[in-house]
Simulated assay, not measured.
Amino acid sequence: MIRFLLTRIALLVVGLAVASILIFFTLRVLPGDVAQVIGGTQASPAQVAAIRTELGLDRPIWQQYGDWIGGLVRLDLGRSLITHTPVADELGQKLQVTLPLAGLSLLFGLVIGVPLGVVSALRHRKVSGFLLSGAAQAVAAVPVVFAGVLLIVVFALTLKALPTQGFPLDGWREPGRALQALILPALTIALVEGAVILRFTRSAALEALGQDYVRTAASKGMTTTRALITHGLPNVLLSVVSVIGIQIAGLIVGAVIVEALFQLPGVGRMLVSDVGNRDFTKVQSELLVLTALILVVGTAVDITHRLIDPRERERA
């Protein structure tokens, strides 16, 4: 187990290193000049050159990358090229919206996907099971933006039950209002993610129904439903844990997209604004933090899977 943990941690570090290289050098290929953005359209070439020198943008690119990595090692995400404020402070505030949104979306997705996936498997020979499976395939293909617009029309404009835009100015000091503001965006992501979880859960449950231990339990007088829940559900949940690792990137990306639709002050809106301003220091740090979150959750899922699955430990 210790060897497995060390291997996963080493892969995490390598993944972050590769991601930092890709993010840093890809951003430098994008058109636009942050010095020109700061100087404005009326700035002369000499003024733009002076701004580039002040910001250190005239140095070799490998030196700029080294300075950024050196700051990251010290847990310093740098300062904005536009406002000169610490990136970590603003990013920490924005993550207070994005992370709860992603977590709530995952919770809703599990509540939707796991029970309906089990029901779909138990009724796979009936019309209701076929309809559930077909609906899941259709919903999984729906763009997140379209799902958000549909939910806005139903729950906000028609039922007038939930707010459609904004977040309390006091943030989580008003937990009731803050949670209410995240429900509709979280449902938007959860509809699509929940459909994917439903399909994986259904496949795992169908596989469990074909196992000898479930059939034996059913032959001894248990109903098929009870036999699956009692003996097959642990294996189904293992598959769900694996799905979470696969879908976590979709959750983070979905949260970034949905923030723009619902006008939430999260990392997504900040990222879009900073890309437009060519604020490379903020963009590269934001992207790396999001990548790190995805990699860390994926690593945690792998470790959890190894801990709760005795078959994995036996193979090791």
Score class of each variant (00 low, 15 high):
152 I>N: 01
125 R>C: 01
209 L>T: 09
57 L>V: 03
85 T>C: 01
84 H>N: 08
30 L>Y: 03
70 G>K: 12
58 D>G: 04
4 F>S: 13
313 R>D: 09
57 L>A: 02
85 T>S: 10
248 I>L: 10
220 K>C: 02
161 A>N: 01
106 L>R: 02
35 A>H: 02
265 P>N: 15
94 K>S: 13
168 P>V: 14
24 F>W: 03
254 G>R: 12
135 A>S: 13
179 L>N: 05
284 Q>Y: 01
252 I>Y: 08
50 A>F: 03
71 G>T: 13
291 T>F: 07
221 G>W: 07
207 E>Y: 00
93 Q>D: 14
161 A>H: 02
198 L>N: 09
86 P>F: 13
176 G>K: 06
137 Q>R: 12
184 L>D: 09
236 V>D: 01
44 S>W: 05
308 I>Y: 05
35 A>R: 01
195 A>S: 14
115 P>E: 15
13 V>W: 12
80 S>T: 08
157 L>P: 00
280 F>T: 06
99 L>A: 15
255 A>T: 10
26 T>E: 03
51 I>K: 03
305 H>D: 09
29 V>M: 11
92 G>V: 11
199 R>W: 01
132 L>T: 07
172 W>R: 12
127 V>D: 03
189 I>V: 15
81 L>Q: 07
200 F>R: 00
34 V>L: 04
122 L>F: 14
271 L>M: 14
224 T>G: 10
46 A>P: 06
200 F>C: 00
175 P>H: 08
64 Q>Y: 01
